[in-house]
């Protein structure tokens, strides 16, 4: 495993993703999601919205890193709010 060069932040990041995926699977089994239409012009399930949220968050972070010198925590906070909006009304 040494060659993979793990660091604490990346390990936490991947654990976070894994926990989200397991949580979403469990949620899906307990109460199956039904496709619906929110402010995104597509019929989406919870999983679709999660994917859209994660991908757009990645791009938000990239733009933040490229364009500003501010602390990345600001971008992360913005993304969390964005994810919540997306999951609830997307």
């Amino acid at each position: 495993m040494e060659w993979m060069s793990w660091t604490l932040p990346t390990a936490l990041f991947f654990s976070g993703i894994a926990i989200i995926l397991i949580g979403m699977t469990a949620w899906q089994i307990v109460s199956p999601s039904i496709e619906r239409r929110g402010f995104i012009p597509l019929e989406t399930t919870r999983g679709d919205r999660l994917f859209i949220g994660l991908l757009s968050s990645a791009f938000i972070h990239l733009a933040f890193v490229a364009l500003t010198n501010a602390d990345l925590a600001v971008a992360t906070a913005l993304c969390v709010i964005w994810m919540v909006i997306l999951m609830r009304w997307g």
Binding site: E2, M4, S5, T7, P9, T10, F13, F14
Partner: peptide, 17 residues
């Protein structure tokens, strides 16, 4: 596994393992 490794590499300055 390679994707995870790429993510790990991307936040570090690596000279050798």
């Amino acid at each position: 596994i390679p994707l995870m490794t790429v993510v790990n590499y991307s936040v570090q300055d690596i000279f050798d393992p």
